[in-house]
């Protein structure tokens, strides 16, 4: 009976396991192996040499790019989460079920179009002679330099992650047991106290998962820091492109990618542990 049950469970788990093996574990193992390969005459040759690891990790620009990427992704996560929260809160608590459904549908629509195209459209808005500066000029401000700056990169990251984070936060906040909020209010807690002591802790898992997704997407994004940040300075995804362009050094790019994967796994594991940690 037990065996039968295990087989039944395994059958249902199989798609996930196969998917993970085919599209995550397999490529990851290949990428790790590739980081030890060598390139001769623009062709990769199987080898087990530490040359690529020594070469990349001994370069100052690699660590500069690493720290800058962590900084940008963290900044993006904080900014996106903070901006998304009021919107998600409003959708979860202040609007009707039907409005919330429509809002979520509208938040999904940006994903129908190419992210690259959406990013390029920011050129028209953020340029010094663009729409944003023209509007600011009406109230006597600017012009401000927005493209090819950290601000530009963050706008790009928001384009990529903002709708997704709002959706995740909204779903999480919507599922809070309302009686907990009512109980807090009945016991005399003010709005802020209720928000801080009841709402946020109750939605903690969803809020943290939203932030983790934001960090992961921003950390691995090439488009925003390249096109809106001006690659100044480059992030790790840009370094991967640079490395592959110069002599087809895919193994060195694999070193960068493995370091990125390790970082993301550490961040995701830590964040999820934090999300599910029980209050003492």
């Amino acid at each position: 009976m037990k065996n039968k049950l295990d087989l039944y469970a395994l059958t249902w788990r199989m798609p996930v396991i196969v998917w993970q093996l085919l599209f995550f574990v397999g490529p990851l193992l290949f990428m790790i192996a590739m980081s030890f390969f060598l390139v001769k005459n623009y062709r990769m040759e199987e080898a087990f040499e530490m040359k690529n690891w020594i070469k990349m990790t001994s370069r100052g620009y690699f660590w500069d790019a690493y720290l800058y990427t962590v900084f940008l992704a963290s900044l993006s996560t904080v900014v996106t989460s903070l901006l998304a929260f009021p919107a998600a809160y409003g959708l979860a608590f202040k609007v009707s079920e039907s409005t919330r459904r429509w809002a979520i549908f509208l938040l999904i629509i940006p994903f129908f179009t190419s992210y690259l195209v959406r990013t390029f459209s920011w050129y028209v808005i953020l340029a010094e002679s663009g729409v944003a500066n023209a509007m600011l000029a009406y109230i006597g401000l600017g012009p401000f330099k927005m493209l090819n700056t950290i601000f530009g990169s963050i706008v790009g990251y928001l384009t990529l992650t903002f709708p997704l984070v709002i959706i995740l936060q909204t779903l999480s906040l919507s599922n809070i047991d309302r009686s907990l909020i009512e109980a807090a209010q009945n016991l005399g807690a003010g709005r802020l106290k209720t928000l801080w002591s009841v709402t946020i802790p109750s939605a903690k898992v969803g809020l943290i998962i939203g932030a983790v997704f934001c960090f992961i997407l921003s950390f691995g994004d090439f488009v925003a820091p390249y096109y809106l940040g001006g690659s100044k300075p480059p992030t790790l995804p840009i370094l991967i492109i640079d490395t592959t362009k110069a002599g087809q050094q895919w193994p060195r790019a694999a070193v960068v990618a493995v370091v990125m994967m390790l970082t993301l796994m550490t961040v995701a594991y830590t964040a999820i542990s934090l999300a599910y940690r029980k209050r003492r």
Binding site: E128, G230, P234
Partner: peptide, 19 residues
């Protein structure tokens, strides 16, 4: 002095909008 490093598309857009 440098405002950025661009591929063809970025170079094109940067010059076009006087960035």
């Amino acid at each position: 002095q440098v405002g950025g490093y661009f591929d063809f598309g970025g170079t094109f857009a940067g010059l076009k909008n006087a960035e």
